[in-house]
């Protein structure tokens, strides 16, 4: 039964891949995969349309990587606090807040971003518009925090207590014990947490669609408007001709996104498995 479930997961994954490839077949045939992936212009609706993914890939990368850099220090600190320093009561409250953060719909994050972050970024950096990669990344940083916090916390929690005791008994403070023994011991789990956060960030659609300004061109800085892979698919899919080339190109774009998230999650899982095996001695 378990094996059946395992296989069915693989079958479903393969089916998604095949479905996306099938939908993108026309684009892959007429434009070609390489031209799509390396093309630097995205003008899908002009008379002679240009379908280049590069601005979208850069848009997604800019927002995702910035979000990770913003979220990681705070999330990791939160995980360390919850796992190593908080007492039982505080731990429970903190965990339910994190769960609640994960449960907020992304469109609500988008609205909060529009109301607070966009004007804030505009003010703070003295810009004409706050609808840019930075605003998207800031809101995204909050959205991926629950993933990073809870998985890092699991990894820290899995470090055997023996090691903490051993370090304390050698005349180390709790803090020294945390950064000299516990964090290094949990490093691969923390890495996996960050990667899963990244997978979540790159797949996020609604909030970035609302906040990044959606200009599909290669940005010069984080304070310019960008368009992400997900935002493009969501914004344009409703306006395309059924069975047309544009629709097929969007399917291919979906296939690329699927491949990226699949790879990130796969690597994260392998890293996590390595971490689990470590304490099985």
């Amino acid at each position: 039964m378990i094996r059946l479930n395992g296989w069915s997961a693989i079958v479903i994954l393969a089916a998604i891949g095949i479905f996306l490839a099938y939908g993108g077949a026309r684009a892959l045939g007429e434009v070609g995969f390489w031209t799509l992936v390396t093309g630097s212009e995205w003008y899908p609706t002009i008379a002679e349309p240009r379908f280049g993914f590069v601005p979208l890939l850069i848009g997604s990368a800019a927002v995702t990587i910035t979000a990770i850099f913003l979220s990681m220090p705070v999330s990791l600190a939160a995980a360390v606090f919850i796992s190593e320093f908080a007492n039982k009561r505080v731990k429970e409250v903190a965990k339910s807040i994190i769960e609640f953060m994960a449960a907020v719909p992304s469109v609500v994050y988008g609205l909060i971003g529009i109301a607070i972050v966009v004007p804030g970024v505009k003010e703070a950096f003295n810009l004409d518009s706050g609808l840019n990669a930075m605003s998207g990344a800031i809101v995204l940083a909050f959205m991926i925090a629950p993933t990073i916090v809870s998985i890092s916390e699991d990894a820290l929690h899995a470090v055997p207590n023996d090691l903490r005791q051993g370090s304390l008994a050698l005349g180390n403070t709790r803090w020294q014990t945390t950064y000299k023994v516990v964090l290094p011991s949990a490093s691969s789990g923390v890495l996996a947490a960050v990667m899963l956060g990244m997978g979540r960030a790159i797949g996020e659609t609604m909030a970035v669609l609302m906040l990044t300004g959606n200009a599909a061109r290669i940005p010069g800085s984080l304070f310019e408007s960008v368009r992400t892979i997900t935002g493009t698919i969501a914004a344009e899919m409703g306006n395309v001709v059924q069975g047309g080339l544009h629709q097929s190109v969007l399917f291919t774009l979906g296939l690329v996104l699927f491949a990226i998230t699949f790879l990130i999650n796969l690597v994260a899982d392998l890293v996590l498995e390595k971490q689990r095996r470590r304490w099985r001695r």
Partner: peptide
């Protein structure tokens, strides 16, 4: 107590080397 533990060391029941 941190100071005390540099004067009074401990060896535990189960070997607990650090992962290094």
């Amino acid at each position: 107590p941190v100071e005390l533990r540099t004067k009074v060391g401990q060896v535990f029941q189960k070997p607990n080397p650090f992962p290094m």
